[in-house]
């Protein structure tokens, strides 16, 4: 699916539909996990599909970095024989970030404040990813 300006009208319509569906799912994620500060779905090659954030973020670079680190995490578990990769957890001093794959072409990243229990964030993100996998299909 093409999210850039060169997309055809049909593709644009599909993208807009997907964006709506994903935004709803992301909102549910934020509702489910009180400490969550935002979530984003990116294409596996680093474009923004949709995002819901409580504060302003540089969504474009977040999408690109999400796809980079997800691919590197997958390479890491594969190289060490621990694959396939289920999710990626990063604990920062100010908060947590988790990333997981929705399907072949979509990746989810969610973040929460440092007081939030990591398990809460992770399970909300997993539920969200599973829901999206069934609405969007295995593309």
């Amino acid at each position: 699916m093409n999210i850039s300006d060169g997309a055809s009208p049909v593709e644009k319509l599909k993208a807009a539909q997907e964006k709506q569906q994903v935004e709803k799912a992301l909102q549910r994620l934020l509702d489910m996990c009180a400490g969550a500060t935002g979530a984003l779905v990116a294409t596996a090659d680093g474009f923004v599909v949709a995002r819901v954030f409580k504060q302003d973020i540089a969504e474009k670079s977040l999408a690109a970095i999400t796809s980079s680190v997800m691919s590197l995490a997958e390479a890491l578990v594969n190289e060490t024989g621990q694959g396939p990769c289920q999710n990626l957890i990063v604990e920062g001093q100010e908060g947590h970030v988790v990333s997981l794959r929705i399907n072949h072409t979509r990746v989810l990243t969610a973040m929460a404040t440092r007081n939030t229990r990591l398990g809460m964030l992770l399970s909300a993100a997993k539920v969200c990813a599973e829901q999206l996998a069934s609405t969007l299909g295995e593309k």
């Binding site: 850039s4 060169g6 090659d45 474009f47 980079s68 691919s71």
Partner: peptide, 18 residues
């Protein structure tokens, strides 16, 4: 490699993201 969703896809299936 990740599946390309932009104009790259017209030439090749995947692109390097990491």
């Amino acid at each position: 490699e990740a599946v390309a969703t932009d104009e790259t896809a017209q030439r090749k299936e995947t692109t390097t993201v990491g």
